[in-house]
Amino acid sequence: MKVSVPATSANLGPGFDSLGIAITMKNQVIIRPSKFHSVSLKGEGANNPVLKDNNMFISIFNDFYHNLSHKKRHFRFEFFNEIPLSRGLGSSSAVIVSAIASAYAIEGIKLDKNKLLNLALAYENHPDNITPAVMGGFNVATVQDNEVRYINKSIPKALKAVIVVPNRPISTQLSRKTLPFKYSKDDVIFNISHSSLLTAAFMSEDWKMLRTASLDKVHQKYRMKQMPELFDVQKSALRSGALMSTLSGSGSTLFSICFADDAKRIEKALRNRFSHFKVFTSDFDNTGVKIDL
């Protein structure tokens, strides 16, 4: 059995903890019956022995599998990770979603995506990453009565993402501590209006509105101060023709959206200027979690 989950970019500027989008970069896990438990890991994190010994996927998978099957079986888990760790591209959400989906699939129990999403909420209480990980596409999400309420929109092939991944992370926990304890009414109104406009731009496919709509006064500038060169990355992406450029999640990745025809030029400009960072272009994923038996 193979389960794949896409990388995600959350917040998208003003949509703090509520907006998210999926790209085609994926984490995959292949699970096989085995005489004894074993784990192999390739790709991102392969050189980190802690990920094998203290694997969040295995812990969540075992919790669900034992509750569903009441059996004790051994499996071989083969992980193929494309999503960088601690870079704001939803690696934790991918682990959570794939672990739950795998436990149900291996027992032959059909799991509705809405139920999967709400089961994942117990491990990740912000819906901006887990929703696109499950559903794919662009998502507006909130939590009410312990359930994720969301609206999903597929992204056309006319758009691509150009992504800049710095060579060091920004801690999500430390990043949240940099945020103000209180905000002014003007800043709150600014973000409500821009988040609303950004949502409307995606839903109506008014792509030229993205640059204005993606402005933020709540979290980006505080987080980006931990890595000041990100301000230059953002300005360079917009100057090169990106439709919008925002901090991905809590960082340290910078996520830009552009027209497909402009992607190579923008990628080249960013790679030339920031050669010490990883720069690449990605399509958008409109499928979300995928299970192949």
Rank of each mutant, 00 (worst) to 15 (best):
N55I: 01
N48Q: 12
N191K: 02
R271D: 14
G90E: 00
M25E: 07
L254R: 11
L243F: 01
A161I: 04
I266M: 01
K264D: 15
K208W: 02
V218E: 10
K225E: 15
F64L: 06
L12Y: 05
S59A: 12
F36K: 15
G90C: 06
P127K: 04
I151E: 13
D53S: 13
I155D: 13
S98N: 04
S175H: 04
G136S: 08
D17S: 05
G288H: 02
I151N: 10
K35Q: 09
L243T: 05
S40P: 05
G137P: 06
V97I: 13
G249N: 05
A105K: 07
F79T: 00
T246Q: 10
S252Q: 06
E205W: 03
D186F: 10
F190S: 09
T253G: 01
L243D: 03
K153C: 10
L85N: 05
I192E: 11
N286V: 03
A10K: 01
M1D: 07
A158S: 15
P169G: 14
C258T: 13
V188S: 12
T253A: 12
K42Y: 10
R32G: 05
S93D: 01
H194S: 02
K115W: 02
H70A: 14
I192F: 09
G137V: 09
V143T: 00
N54G: 04
D63F: 07
M56Q: 06
N67C: 03
P84T: 09
N139T: 12
